[in-house]
Design a protein around this nucleic acid. Structure first.
Lengths: 244, 244
DNA sequence: CGTGATTTTGAGAAGTATCAAGAGGAGTGG
DNA sequence: CCACTCCTCTTGATACTTCTCAAAATCACG
């Protein structure tokens, strides 16, 4: 089940779906409590330091949360896709910048309205709380990957994540569309853009993937990709042995 | 304000305090809803794969959450100190192992009891939710550090964090006690134990710190340490009780 | 069809990991 | 109290991955 927004009535609403933030259904926020905004590619949703007044949920498109340091180092904390919540920050101001990766839209609900509803609607409360803990769990994997994997493992993990998120249960697409550019991938994986590019080339040379265009990846050897991606995470078992 | 546990009555309780996970006070869970357990140094609180039945809050001592892969790579996601909540996982089983770094105790509350109380006690609800979002915010910093910093910056960041967490407002202790061993520091920072050791030596040689014993660090040049630590961040404060 | 942005490729440098060995500390038993 | 042992930590030498700097190729768009 997923918390989504029905654009037609501008309300946070809970419906079923393959990925999501909670087991909520048939609940709805009055229209006044949320609205939907559209963003152009690259447009900023919130900036670091802005007063943290709202929570957001992606309706359409892909968004990123970014932290940039004084000396220019950049880390992408997450990519958000339809159904994902973001802006869940504890402080009075946002710590992360949220930007649109491509054209898309976000449902916006004020913190106070969200909190108020959490207090009177247990299912909504559980959904939002699950969203937060789920984000935490993703962060664990992301950090383990960034802290302990080679460039190839990181990129394999990234491609697998994109593919899994684009999948409907039972059907995994053989190609992955990269809506973000190389610099975003690099900053998400803790690598440089050159290393990302070289690693793509290396994977292509090994026959693991094909690159019909720079923004489209065909997965030619899903088993090997999975193995690389899972290399530093809780794994299947050793008897799942695949020869490279 | 801080959510703490009163060991005398084995209850999660909210009291005032300088750091905390929410603005909760004068609320209390009936005794039956939580209990306190003691753990020996190194003892496991929950293991990866165990059914995720409880949430925890540190009463005394330091705990760590660890992810180990089949090929031996190890990542420490967080160190938890008194007042910190952990075990906030979305799935049916724990994804992380939680262990005692030194002898300590944890308050335990069942997920169902915690959820139930969240639904009927708005202040408690807000406190727990804030705890989750705060953990998320720390995770952002941790990941940025692991993904984008040099060994020296990482260690400086780590020492600064420990010092800030041991501080009471207005008084920063000049020494930091390392309750965890070098391997834990390495696995928290995404480095090898050798690099951690060499970096300590390097900082000592530069006059940044002194090491009266292996487990005690004297900070001789706090300004430089801060500068190194903040190199890839911008938030100078560590006034947070939840460590990722 | 240009023009600027993005991506790829190359060569060399730097930082960290790896492998190996030695030093230091804490606890145990004589 | 000292010697022994185990474990942690430090140091050293080398290898390797990734970063940095630089330039060429490709792509997007007016």
């Amino acid at each position: 089940m997923t918390l989504v927004v029905n654009p037609s009535d501008n309300a946070f609403r809970a419906v079923g779906g393959p990925f999501g933030i909670g087991e909520v259904s048939n609940t709805r926020v009055p229209h006044a409590e949320s609205s939907v905004s559209h963003y152009a590619s690259g447009e900023e949703v919130v900036g670091e330091g802005d007063p943290a007044e709202n929570y957001f949920m992606v309706v359409k498109g892909v968004f990123r949360s970014v932290k940039v340091t004084r000396d220019g180092r950049r880390q992408i904390f997450a990519f958000y896709m339809p159904g994902d919540m973001c802006g869940l920050e504890p402080g009075a101001t946002y710590d992360l910048t949220i930007e649109a990766v491509n054209a898309g839209s976000m449902a916006i609900i004020s913190r106070t309205a969200c909190r108020a509803r959490m207090n009177r609607d247990p299912q909504f409360n559980a959904a939002v709380f699950d969203g937060a803990t789920r984000a935490l769990a993703l962060s664990v994997d992301h950090m383990t990957m960034v802290g302990r994997s080679s460039a190839e493992e990181r990129l394999a993990w990234f491609l697998k994540m994109l593919r899994d998120r684009a999948s409907v249960p039972g059907r995994q697409p053989p190609t992955v569309d990269l809506v973000m550019q190389r610099q975003d991938i690099a900053d998400y994986l803790g690598l440089t853009i050159e290393t990302v590019s070289r690693t793509f080339t290396h994977m292509k040379d090994r026959g693991l993937i094909a690159l019909p265009t720079t923004r489209r990846v065909e997965i030619l050897n899903p088993e090997l990709l999975e193995r690389l991606a899972a290399a530093d995470r809780d794994a299947p078992t050793w008897d799942r042995r695949i020869c490279a």
